[in-house]
Lab assay of single mutants.
Amino acid sequence: NQASVVANQLIPINTALTLVMMRSEVVTPVGIPAEDIPRLVSMQVSRAVPLGTTLMPDMVKGYA
């Protein structure tokens, strides 16, 4: 089972991601792979992401 990136806190719209905002977790459906966490740092979210939400490619500007 592949771990995905999950929000560790509420991430407001247009916030630049930092390591403390993200954790890896095995979830369904699968989201952005956990190994991409270093690449996500400083990228902005395109919408508010609630705590515990799996990050999907369309939620991060410039990821897809």
Rank of each mutant, 00 (worst) to 15 (best):
V60I: 10
N1F: 15
T18V: 06
D36C: 06
D58T: 13
G62V: 03
L40E: 00
V45W: 00
S42Q: 13
K61I: 09
L40V: 05
Q9G: 05
Y63A: 03
L19M: 12
R39W: 14
G52Q: 05
M22A: 01
Q44L: 13
L51K: 14
M56S: 08
T15F: 09
M59E: 03
E25I: 06
I13M: 11
N1L: 14
S42P: 02
I11G: 01
T54P: 06
G31S: 03
A64G: 12
S4K: 01
I37A: 09
L55N: 02
A64Q: 14
L40S: 00
A7P: 01
L17K: 00
N1I: 15
P38C: 06
V27T: 08
T28E: 15
T54V: 10
M56N: 07
S42H: 06
P29L: 07
V49A: 07
G62A: 09
V45E: 00
V5L: 03
G31N: 01
E35F: 10
V49G: 01
T53Y: 14
E35V: 10
P33H: 14
P57Q: 08
G62C: 11
R23F: 04
V30E: 15
M43I: 04
A48Q: 12
P50G: 09
V26C: 09
T54H: 03
S4V: 02
V27W: 03
M43H: 08
A3Q: 13
R23P: 01
V20A: 09
R23H: 04
A3S: 15
S46T: 13
P33C: 05
S42M: 09
A3R: 06
M59L: 05
V30N: 10
P29W: 04
S24A: 13
S4W: 02
M43S: 08
T54M: 03
R39E: 09
L55M: 13
V49N: 02
L51V: 15
N8T: 15
Q44Y: 14
L40Y: 02
P50T: 15
R23C: 04
N14F: 09
N1K: 05
I13R: 10
A64S: 14
V26N: 11
E35Q: 12
R47D: 06
L10P: 13
I37M: 12
Q44C: 15
I11K: 00
P50N: 14
E25G: 12
P50I: 08
K61C: 14
T53N: 12
T54K: 05
A7I: 10
T28W: 04
L40H: 01
A7M: 04
T54Y: 02
V26R: 03
P50M: 15
M43N: 05
E35K: 07
M43G: 03
Q44D: 04
A34R: 04
V5Y: 01
I32P: 00
R47L: 08
P29K: 05
T28Q: 09
E35A: 11
L40G: 00
T15G: 05
L10E: 13
T18E: 09
S46C: 06
E25N: 12
L10K: 08
R23L: 04
V6G: 01
Y63K: 03
P38L: 10
V27D: 02
L51A: 15
V60W: 02
P38M: 14
T15L: 05
V5Q: 00
V30L: 15
Q9Y: 12
L51I: 15
T54G: 03
A7Q: 01
R39L: 11
E25T: 07
A16W: 09
S4C: 05
M22D: 01
M21H: 06
P33K: 07
V6W: 02
Q44T: 14
P50R: 08
R23M: 04
L10F: 09
M22T: 01
V49S: 02
T54E: 01
I11W: 01
L17E: 01
M59I: 06
K61E: 07
L10R: 09
L19W: 12
A64P: 14
R47V: 12
P57V: 05
Y63I: 04
G31T: 02
P12Y: 07
M56C: 07
T53Q: 14
E25H: 07
T28C: 15
T53I: 11
D36H: 14
A48V: 12
R47W: 07
M59Y: 08
P29G: 04
L10S: 12
I32K: 00
A48H: 12
E35I: 08
M21K: 03
N14P: 01
A7R: 00
V27L: 06
I32M: 03
L10C: 06
S46G: 13
E35P: 07
A16M: 09
R47C: 04
L17P: 02
S24C: 06
S4Q: 02
A7C: 04
S42N: 07
N14V: 03
V6Q: 04
V20D: 13
R47M: 11
S42I: 03
D58F: 14
P33Q: 07
I37Q: 06
D36A: 12
R47A: 11
L19R: 10
A7V: 09
A3K: 06
T15K: 05
V60H: 00
G62R: 07
P57H: 15
N8G: 12
G31P: 01
Q2D: 15
P50C: 07
P57A: 12
P57L: 04
A34E: 10
M56T: 13
L51N: 14
D58G: 09
S24T: 12
V20H: 11
N8I: 08
P38R: 09
M59F: 08
L17W: 02
Y63W: 14
I13P: 09
M22R: 00
V49D: 02
P50Y: 13
V45M: 11
S24L: 07
A34K: 05
T28I: 06
P12F: 07
V41K: 05
T28L: 05
T53G: 11
A48P: 14
G31C: 03
G52C: 07
T18A: 06
V30A: 10
I37F: 03
S46M: 14
S4L: 02
M21C: 03
S42F: 13
P57S: 10
Q2H: 11
N14A: 11
E25Q: 07
S46Y: 14
L19I: 08
I37W: 03
T18M: 07
M22G: 00
P33I: 14
A7G: 03
S4M: 02
S42C: 13
V20P: 06
L19V: 06
E35D: 11
R39I: 12
M59N: 07
V26T: 11
Q2E: 15
T28K: 04
K61T: 14
V41F: 09
V20K: 13
V49Y: 02
A3Y: 15
N1W: 13
A7K: 00
L19G: 05
E35M: 09
V27Q: 08
E35G: 08
Q9R: 09
T54A: 05
Q2G: 15
T53V: 15
G31W: 02
A16F: 07
Q9A: 14
R39D: 05
